[in-house]
Design a protein around this nucleic acid. Structure first.
Lengths: 295, 295
DNA sequence: CTATCTGATAATTCATAGTTATTAAATACT
DNA sequence: AGTATTTAATAACTATGAATTATCAGATAG
């Protein structure tokens, strides 16, 4: 009759929304299929909104259902985070902060941040995860991540973006490439080489910047390969499958038969920024941001 | 045993946290005091954290409880907001509709539709794209577009077609063409001129109709150029590369040295229809269709 | 045309939220 | 001090409704 929505409904709903299959979803939840059916139907009744379209043999989300899926993911993630923090507070610790970062941030900003954090707030737990720009933004919006380190110039509404590290770019060449640092004058000298770049969708900002560097030099690069990890890019260069242009900081931390030539003269810079949700409720976050801005 | 937190717990918790008095909180919730006591206790068990300090006669929040109070308020508010939005989406008052149109629809139907839509459903977002007939049909079938505006007499199965605007045709002549509106009697007078038409595959319906107009007049037109954009057609006419026959509405909105002679007597009409997928589940779509049919 | 999927329905069971009745402890008032 | 009145917690019970089993009807595949 006059039921109320419960978290149980959300968990059931999410399972169906993910599987788009009642029996499979029910199995995953360790309940019976009829039970799941009635609960979802009840949920639709409470919300007075149809969430799924079932035309025998196919289950799909309605636009409303699709919207709710995003919200439910957010609510459940937020709740999970709240539970963890609650327990830490109960135990006298302070909390946890979940940080995402691009692989290229591991060389400088992240280690410093972690050391400082550990020193100032010894009871703060940190969880670290290497993710693409896009994945970080999505995780932050869904409250799966508190702080991200990305290379982007714009972020969706509701998120804050603050540059924290500016780096020059460097040319990456096979160790035995004819061009040497002392002979180097301009990247025009490698205009005809094949280029290996980070995937456009891993970091569109980086991609555009590298193209603009080449454009400024008066040529359009021949992109032979795209990759996601610096490791892979360097390996490809080492094997003479092409050359690359990457943030200079990446030269540290890899053991490869490649040489770096820093492009000091060009105006473009690799900018690493931190992102977070403006209305994030994690009390640890503000401390973390303040700390970083002082670095 | 192995209970799960439910929203009920949060609502009960909040009542106690506000009243700091079990009996009063229970009254407010219309449940009995022992029931409330056990639920709160159960909650503390699930969260493995003490939330209240009860030293007989006084109830206080622990620091953890204080933190949780803020979070619960946030979650319940967010949930309330989500429920409201969900209902709006379900009713089609909130959401997005993706509209495709032929350039020639931009003069009349589209602006009116958009204005009306904005007025009636201010929270609906629209995405607009100028596309050929063919491209619109293909996009609608793939669910990349919700609504299209085309000049076609038939559409593939599963799509619905509804005429929304009927227009006469007009002859388009260079400004200094010998033929004037007052001397005009029949298009036979321009039977020997070269014709510029919209490409057959941009709008086969239009193409056939123009041919039939000429046929009815007893001649077969000399087609010198074909183009996709009205802009281009008019430019070609302006430069005396030929004359054209286009829907009359196109005479507005272009700054060209051409003159229009409306073909009032001929029976053919330029019919603009809207197309959509019969089983499209976007709730905004139906509202949009209803609105247009009333126009 | 049968076999095998799908989700929905109906009847039933069973867990548990919430009930009433009561208790123990703390304060307030003669 | 002794009684009255308050508090939340405990115990025994009830009744709501979540979840189960059994079954059905429609869709698809072989």
């Amino acid at each position: 009759m006059n039921y109320q929505i419960e978290l149980r409904h959300f968990i059931y709903f999410l399972a169906v929304a993910e599987e788009l299959h009642y029996r499979k979803a029910a199995e995953k939840l360790f309940i019976s299929q009829p039970g799941l059916s009635t609960q979802i139907k009840q949920m639709e009744g409470i919300l007075q909104t149809q969430l799924f379209i079932r035309d025998k043999k196919k289950v799909r989300l309605t636009p409303a259902g699709d919207f709710l899926k995003g919200e439910v993911e957010f609510i459940l993630n937020h709740l999970e985070q709240t539970k963890k923090q609650l327990k830490l507070i109960g135990e006298g610790h302070l909390g946890e902060i979940r940080i995402g970062f691009l692989g290229s941030a591991m060389q400088n900003v992240i280690p410093n941040l972690l050391l400082d954090l550990k020193e100032k707030f010894p009871f703060i737990h940190t969880s670290l995860e290497e993710l693409s720009n896009k994945a970080q933004i999505s995780a932050i919006l869904r409250d799966k991540l508190d702080l991200g380190f990305v290379r982007l110039s714009r972020v969706p509404k509701g998120l804050k973006l603050k540059p924290v590290f500016e780096d020059t770019f460097s040319l990456v060449l096979p160790a035995d490439h004819i061009l040497n640092e002392k002979d180097f004058k301009s990247i025009n000298q490698v205009a005809t080489d094949d280029f290996i770049l980070f995937s456009q969708d891993y970091s569109p900002q980086y991609y555009d910047t590298v193209l603009s560097i080449c454009e400024d030099a008066g040529f359009s690069p021949n992109v032979s390969h795209k990759s996601v990890h610096a490791q892979t890019v360097f390996k490809l260069v080492e094997n003479k499958l092409g050359i690359a242009i990457v943030p200079t900081a990446l030269q540290y931390g890899f053991q490869m038969k490649v040489k770096f030539i820093e492009l000091k003269k060009i105006k473009q810079r690799a900018i690493l920024s931190m992102v977070w949700k403006e209305d994030n409720r994690n009390p640890v976050l503000q401390n973390c941001i303040d700390l970083l801005l002082k670095l």
